[in-house]
């Protein structure tokens, strides 16, 4: 049998047991401390929630008791601030939060930024971004370091209000490896002026950034982005064109149908599908002939979407009845009949 002595094994086991006991005790103490902290936070919340409400809703001075003295009280304040920022859009409350955080919490967050633990630094950066704390110098120190993707993301959010002049440069430098989701989160949080500046440099962004940017413009539902979006319809990348059609559909305005007509016969079914949606923004009498093509499309998805879109139009059911009688395409007829039998849904 392979050589393995009982003594050695017993030693290994004893060492491991001791290690586990130590780790167990550490976890237990940590748990107790955590409970204690949570209790402290809850006590602060119970005691001061009303006072915070009074402070936010009146013009009075800040009372001494609201100023947090311990980490757990800071966590209580954070919870209150976050919930106000999320649920109330009053600019004076935002201003008050910003002033208070800069005066009483700034030092705490700067300490978090200096932590060796990644998770603690992230928590600090997030708060700085949430409460818009003035600390450009400290944040720029992250430049030289081997900054993680998550840190770069939070830093960009911070630079969108602290370092606006250089935002585009920072964006290009720090967004390496960002997913579409991260780009979207970032673009949602920045204002129109910065968005406008990005439009002029969009080609420099990685593809994920370009897709996200177009999606976000669509979600703004603002006609002022239509010029840019329509220019993207001629983009050589298929995905950009599809996203653009989707964004224009979200805005809900088709200004010149001629610009879109080619997509009805696009070699890509995804573009035809988007057209089946987009045409729903125009009166049926203007689009009827195009819908006929889409209803007889070779792709199930396109046929289905075309029938659904028509079904939503006030004259849609009549159109589908007529179509169903005149078409020679069996699959198109089935699709039209499904919508007819479900009363347009």
């Amino acid at each position: 049998m392979m050589y393995l002595s009982i003594e050695l094994l017993i030693r290994i086991i004893v060492v491991l047991v001791v290690l586990l006991i130590c780790f167990g005790i550490y976890v237990a103490i940590n748990g107790l401390r955590e409970n204690y902290r949570n209790k402290g936070k809850t006590t602060y919340l119970d005691a001061e929630q009303e006072n915070w409400y009074t402070y936010f809703s009146s013009a009075g001075e800040i009372s001494e008791s609201l100023i947090p003295k311990t980490t757990r009280e800071i966590q209580g304040v954070e919870e209150i601030f976050i919930s106000y920022l999320k649920n109330v859009s009053d600019p004076t409350i935002k201003e008050k939060i910003n002033q208070f955080s800069n005066k009483y919490l700034r030092e705490h967050y700067l300490t978090l930024l200096r932590s060796k633990k990644w998770s603690i630094r992230i928590n600090g950066l997030k708060r700085i971004a949430n409460f818009e704390i003035e600390c450009l110098e400290e944040c720029q120190k992250f430049k030289g370091k081997n900054t993680s993707k998550e840190e770069n993301f939070q830093l960009l959010k911070i630079f969108s209000f602290l370092n606006r002049e250089n935002f585009e440069d920072e964006l290009l430098n720090r967004s390496t490896g960002f997913s579409e989701y991260e780009f979207k989160k970032l673009f949602v949080s920045i204002d129109e002026e910065l968005l406008g500046r990005i439009i002029t440099n969009i080609e420099d962004l990685p593809k994920a950034g370009q897709y996200a940017f177009i999606d976000i413009l669509g979600s703004k539902r603002d006609m002022k982005y239509l010029d840019f979006l329509e220019s993207q319809l001629l983009n050589e990348h298929q995905e950009i064109r599809i996203r653009t059609l989707k964004a224009i559909h979200s805005i809900g305005v088709v200004r010149e149908l001629e610009k879109y007509i080619d997509f009805v016969k696009s070699p890509f079914w995804e573009e035809r599908l988007m057209m089946a949606k987009l045409l729903g923004n125009l009166p049926l009498n203007e689009t009827a002939s195009h819908f006929r093509v889409l209803l007889e499309d070779e792709s199930w998805w396109v046929r289905s979407q075309a029938a659904k879109t028509i079904g939503k139009d006030k004259d849609g059911l009549d159109y589908l009845k007529n179509f169903s009688k005149t078409t020679g395409d069996k699959y198109a007829m089935e699709m039209a009949n499904e919508i007819l039998l479900n009363g347009g849904n």
Binding site: L9, I13, V17, V27
Partner: peptide, 25 residues
């Protein structure tokens, strides 16, 4: 027999205990 039993303890019990503590943490 004793060596194998000890390995069983190491494999069957200590690793489980370690994962419970890790989970608690």
């Amino acid at each position: 027999a004793i060596i194998l039993s000890l390995l069983f303890v190491l494999y069957g019990s200590l690793l489980s205990v370690a994962s419970i503590i890790l989970e608690a943490w």
